[in-house]
């Protein structure tokens, strides 16, 4: 079976792609639900010592930038739309690098990952950045694969994934700084 055969049914394939992305996001939601459950259990233990830091704000800003980039792309067309995708990819890549820096600073800082709160900060951010890395790679791959500007369906999926990851980041930071 050659994949081009399926291209003869674009609407079905687009539908399939949407289902695939929603299914992947459902699995991601369950992954974070599991991690959050573990966090909520662990924070009730005696050795829980939360700390505060300013790092969430730059990360949140980059997440928001990615979401704004994709919305800008959705509201334009042609070359500008393609540029919007590029902006999204850059914002996501910057986020990944920044999150890595935060995790490294926690791991190398006082108490390291031995302190349970810090371990959860690194864990939640780390898993989120792995997903962001995946989404960024997907966006770059879409840009390389598409001969012209991204299709409406690609755009829809990219918006869904980007906003999902930004919302997830907000939820993680809410958890780490409000429910600590």
């Amino acid at each position: 079976m050659n994949p081009t055969t399926l291209a003869q049914r674009p609407s079905a394939i687009e539908h399939a792609a949407r289902i695939g992305v929603v299914a992947a996001l459902s699995a991601t939601t369950m992954l974070f639900a599991s991690l959050v459950s573990a966090y909520l259990v662990r924070r009730s233990f005696a050795d829980w010592r939360p700390s505060s830091a300013l790092w969430p704000f730059p990360l949140l800003a980059l997440g928001l930038l990615a979401s704004l980039g994709i919305e800008a792309a959705a509201r334009s067309s042609g070359r500008r739309r393609r540029q919007g995708f590029k902006a999204l990819a850059w914002a996501s890549a910057s986020y990944v690098v920044s999150a890595l820096a935060v995790i490294a600073s926690i791991a190398l800082g006082q108490g390291g990952l031995g302190a349970p709160y810090q371990a959860f900060v690194a864990l939640l951010l780390g898993v989120h950045l792995v997903h962001s890395l995946g989404a960024t790679s997907f966006a770059v791959w879409m840009l390389r694969e598409a001969s012209g500007p991204p299709s409406e369906n690609s755009l829809l999926l990219a918006r869904l994934v980007t906003h999902f990851l930004t919302a997830l980041l907000f939820a993680i930071i809410f958890l780490l700084f409000v429910l600590r």
Binding site: L6, R9, A12, H15, A16, A17, I19, G20, A23
Partner: peptide
């Protein structure tokens, strides 16, 4: 599997 059953 999901995409195939539901969309194709």
């Amino acid at each position: 599997f999901l995409a195939t059953i539901l969309a194709l």
